[in-house]
């Protein structure tokens, strides 16, 4: 066999790879997205807008947004905190903590939902106590928030841990010697260094919090207009043969997802612009 020193792939290989990946992306991502919008608008704009005059739909949107508004900041904060803790310090139980962080990934969302029933349901660990004080967690909004918090937690932490490990602690130590307080170090040194990893983690958290179905469906109780998030309500609409409405709501969710991606691009632009503004005029 003659050994050829191939420096670049031949054109046909490149074309083939391109076509295969293009086809894959098209079929599994572009086509479904386009279908959602097509089905949503199939009967015209009037029918599409009618969906959003349904009070059940509006309450589902509000509940989903409320859940995201609570879960994303909390998980971001604790994600950063835990990533910091795990990469900068050594302590007994560290490895256990790392495994626990991955728990929401490894168990099925339905099981995650059941966990909350086992904790807060009337026969759960806290059941009797909760009933006595008439505190409602499962089958009410707090349960939905908790379940969503659980399943969307790992993203920020897992994005940041390898990043922070690689960055090391030199920068932070330098800032320490220059007299910076803990908060100043975090805000001016650590945060800018991790910002892209953090942003990506936030986007993933947001996506999961908005789109979660399994865990939420278990703790929800499906009380329409009260404990139905957008994904749950889409399921309801579909089950009632209201396909236009189901796809209309789905198109809204898709749109929200696109908005987060656009927000990321805007942020990139903004940060680059900030760089420019730091320039100092040198006097000759």
């Amino acid at each position: 066999m003659v050994k050829k020193r191939v420096v670049h792939e031949p054109l046909w290989v490149k074309t083939l790879l391109f076509l295969i990946s293009g086809a894959f992306l098209f079929v599994f991502i572009v086509l479904p997205l386009v279908t959602i919008f097509r089905e949503a608008f199939k009967s015209g704009i009037a029918v599409y807008m009618e969906t959003f005059s349904d009070p059940g739909v509006m309450s589902a949107i509000k509940l989903s947004l409320l859940t995201v508004l609570i879960c994303v900041p909390i998980n971001t904060f604790f994600g950063v905190f835990i990533a910091w803790l795990l990469t900068k310090y050594r302590f007994p139980g560290r490895k256990v903590l790392i495994t626990i962080i991955d728990l929401p990934f490894s168990i099925s969302p339905v099981i995650a939902g059941l966990l909350f029933i086992f904790l807060f349901g009337s026969f759960g660990w806290f059941g009797a106590w909760l009933m006595e004080y008439d505190i409602r967690i499962v089958f009410a909004v707090p349960g939905i928030v908790l379940a969503t918090l659980f399943v969307s937690f790992p993203f920020v932490a897992r994005e940041l841990m390898p990043l922070m490990r690689e960055l090391g602690k030199d920068d932070e130590e330098a800032a320490l010697t220059l007299g910076a307080s803990g908060f100043q170090i975090f805000w001016k040194v650590t945060l800018p260094n991790i910002k892209w990893g953090l942003l990506y983690g936030i986007i993933l958290t947001n996506a999961r919090a908005l789109g979660e179905f399994g865990a939420v469906s278990v703790v929800s109780g499906f009380v329409r207009g009260v404990t139905t998030t957008m994904p749950l309500y889409i399921d309801i609409l579909y089950g009632e043969y209201m396909f236009r409405a189901a796809f209309a709501l789905a198109s809204l969710m898709t749109f929200l997802a696109l908005v987060t991606i656009i927000a990321k691009a805007v942020l990139e632009y903004y940060i680059a612009a900030q760089r420019k503004s730091m320039e100092v005029k040198i006097q000759s």
Binding site: L66, I70, F77, D134, A140, V141, P142
Partner: peptide
Amino acid sequence: MDKMKLTTVLFVLFLASFAYSQGK
């Protein structure tokens, strides 16, 4: 800057979701 404030706001939001469901 106000991480304390932010945390408090979030905690209040969380409690608000409680109140929201009880108050109904």
